[in-house]
C-alpha cells in the first residue's frame, strides 16, 4: 500500500459568500498520476491554491506529506507549473538555464548561491525534458511546447515528490500535447506523483492512473476506465451541463 501524500478531509472553501468547495475528501497516494477535471468555476484551481498554501481552507483539514498544511515547510517537495507559464512576458530576458535555476530558489533558501552540484541538477532536468541544446537561448524565443518543457524542467530541478500542473497544455498544439503527456507519463514512472488539471480529457485518460471530477465537491474519483464507462448523462450531471466529450481513438 503506497503512502498518502495529500489528504483532504471535509474541506470547504468560501470566497466571501460564494462557496467554491464543499466537503471535499480527496487522497493522493505516492506514485499517483491524477487527472483533475470538472467545469470552469468548479473549484479545481481553488483546490490547488489550498494545496500550495496560497489560500486557507474555511473548514476541514489538509495534510501534506503527513503534516498539517500550516506546519508544512518543506516547499521543495512539491513543485507547481501554473497556467501563467503560458502567459509570461515573452520579452523577458532570461535564458533557459536561468529559468530552470529559479526552480532551486526554495531549496537553496535565502542568501545561498548555486554550487557545482546544483548546476549538474539543472543540466539533468533540462536533459530529462529533452531540451539540452537550448540552455543559453532566451526563453521567449522558443515555441509554446518547448517553453512548457522548460517549465517542467524548472519544476523538476528541486527533485520534488509531487508536481501540480494547472492546465499546462493550453495553447500547445495537438501533436505536442501528446508528446507532453508522454513526458509526464515518463516522469510518473520515475515515481513522481502528478496532479494535473486539464480539459484534455481524451489524452489524459490514456495516461493518468486516476481521474477525479470536481464540481464544488468530488463527484468521481476512480480509474480512467471506469471514468470512460460513465454514461453521458452521468458526466453531464457532474458537470452541471451537457458535455461533449472528445475522446481520442488510439
Amino acid at each position: 500500500m503506497s503512502k498518502p501524500i495529500v489528504e483532504m478531509k471535509n474541506v470547504s472553501f468560501h470566497y466571501g459568500d460564494r462557496q467554491a468547495l464543499s466537503d471535499v475528501n480527496f487522497i493522493i497516494n505516492e506514485g499517483d498520476f491524477i487527472g483533475l477535471v470538472g467545469p470552469n468555476g468548479g473549484g479545481k484551481t481553488t483546490l490547488i491554491k489550498l494545496l500550495l498554501g496560497m489560500e486557507k481552507q474555511t473548514n476541514g483539514t489538509i495534510q501534506l506529506f503527513g503534516q498539517p498544511i500550516h506546519k508544512f515547510k518543506e516547499k521543495n517537495k512539491l513543485s507547481y507549473v501554473s497556467q501563467k507559464a503560458n502567459t509570461f512576458n515573452r520579452g523577458f530576458p532570461a535564458t533557459v538555464e536561468e529559468v530552470v535555476t529559479m526552480g532551486l530558489t526554495a531549496k537553496l533558501g535565502y542568501f545561498r548561491r548555486l554550487s557545482r552540484q546544483h548546476k549538474k541538477r539543472i543540466y539533468e532536468a533540462v536533459e530529462k525534458v529533452g531540451m539540452t541544446g537550448y540552455l543559453s537561448e532566451n526563453i521567449g524565443e522558443l515555441s509554446g511546447g518547448q517553453q512548457q518543457r522548460i517549465f517542467i524542467a524548472r519544476a523538476l530541478v528541486s527533485n520534488p515528490q509531487l508536481i501540480i500542473l494547472d492546465e499546462p497544455t493550453v495553447g500547445v498544439d495537438a501533436e505536442n500535447v501528446e508528446k507532453f503527456f508522454e513526458l509526464l507519463h515518463e516522469l510518473n514512472k520515475q515515481n513522481i506523483t502528478l496532479l494535473l488539471i486539464t480539459h484534455d480529457i481524451g489524452t489524459m485518460t490514456h495516461h493518468a492512473s486516476r481521474v477525479a471530477c470536481l464540481n464544488k465537491t468530488l463527484h468521481f474519483h476512480g480509474n480512467p476506465n471506469e471514468f470512460q464507462t460513465l454514461s453521458k448523462d452521468q458526466l453531464s450531471d457532474f458537470y452541471g451541463h451537457p458535455l461533449n466529450l472528445v475522446t481520442h481513438e488510439h
Binding site: 496560497m54 516547499k75 507547481y80 501554473s82 509570461f88 535555476t101 532551486l104 530558489t105 526554495a106 535565502y110
Partner: peptide, 22 residues
C-alpha cells in the same frame, strides 16, 4: 548579490515566487 535569485524569480513570475515561500 544576496537576494538576486529571489528578486529574479519575483520579477519573472510572482505567483511562483509566492508558492516557493518567498
Amino acid at each position: 548579490f544576496l537576494l538576486y535569485k529571489e528578486l529574479f524569480l519575483l520579477s519573472f513570475d510572482e505567483e511562483q515566487a509566492v508558492v516557493t515561500g518567498i
